Amino acid sequence: MKKRNQYSAEFKSKVVLEVLQEASTVNEIAAKHGINPVVISRWKCEFMERAAEVFKKGPSTAEKELEEKNERVAQLERKIGQLTYEVDWLKKKSEEIIGPDWEKRFR
């Protein structure tokens, strides 16, 4: 079974820009790069659909998702810090009240 080729975004954009320059046909560009012309046509359609996103103001959906994930991570790190502080405080108070060997007696 043949493995599917994975092309980088830079390569795809380079090929699509060649097609848009119209210096050669899609078939010639496909033969030059060893890619099926249908694949190049799909890349071109996707490129044209998403071209407007380049000029949109504000963060993109991917940037929004990344910001939400970063906020969630920061929130969880704050919670871990708070819980660690509480555990350390409880250990200290347990030693003061019960004695330094309290862990041995209660395990």
Rank of each mutant, 00 (worst) to 15 (best):
Y85I: 05
L83P: 01
W43D: 03
R42P: 07
E71R: 15
T25R: 05
K93E: 00
K64W: 01
S94P: 08
D88Y: 08
Q82F: 06
L17S: 11
E53C: 07
P59F: 00
P37A: 04
K79P: 01
K92C: 01
R42M: 11
I97D: 00
W89R: 11
E68H: 05
C45V: 10
E28Y: 07
L90G: 00
E86L: 11
C45A: 15
S8G: 10
K92T: 02
L76Y: 12
S60W: 01
E71H: 13
F55H: 14
K104L: 09
S13K: 11
V15H: 01
D88I: 09
E71D: 13
E22S: 09
A31K: 07
S94F: 06
F106G: 01
D101C: 12
E10F: 12
V26P: 03
A62P: 01
R107M: 10
R78D: 13
K69W: 08
V16L: 01
L20W: 10
H33M: 08
V19T: 04
Q6I: 15
E68T: 08
N36A: 10
G81L: 05
E96M: 00
E67L: 12
E46G: 14
G81S: 04
T84R: 05
Y85R: 10
L90T: 00
A51G: 05
G58Y: 09
A74H: 05
L83Q: 09
I35K: 02
K64R: 01
V87F: 06
A74I: 09
R105I: 12
Q6K: 14
K91I: 01
E65R: 08
A23Y: 09
K69Y: 11
I40P: 04
N70M: 13
F11T: 11
D101I: 06
E95K: 03
K14G: 06
I40H: 06
W89C: 11
L83N: 07
E96N: 00
G99R: 00
D101S: 15
M48V: 11
L76A: 15
F11Q: 09
L66H: 10
M48L: 14
S60Q: 07
E68I: 07
I80L: 12
F47L: 08
M48W: 02
S41P: 07
S60E: 02
R107C: 06
R107A: 12
V26N: 07
H33L: 08
I29G: 06
G99S: 06
E95N: 03
P100H: 11
T25C: 02
E71I: 11
K56L: 13
K57I: 10
Q21K: 15
F11Y: 12
V54Y: 08
V73Q: 03
A30G: 08
E63V: 08
F47D: 10
V26W: 03
W102E: 00
A31Y: 05
D101N: 15
K32H: 06
S41A: 13
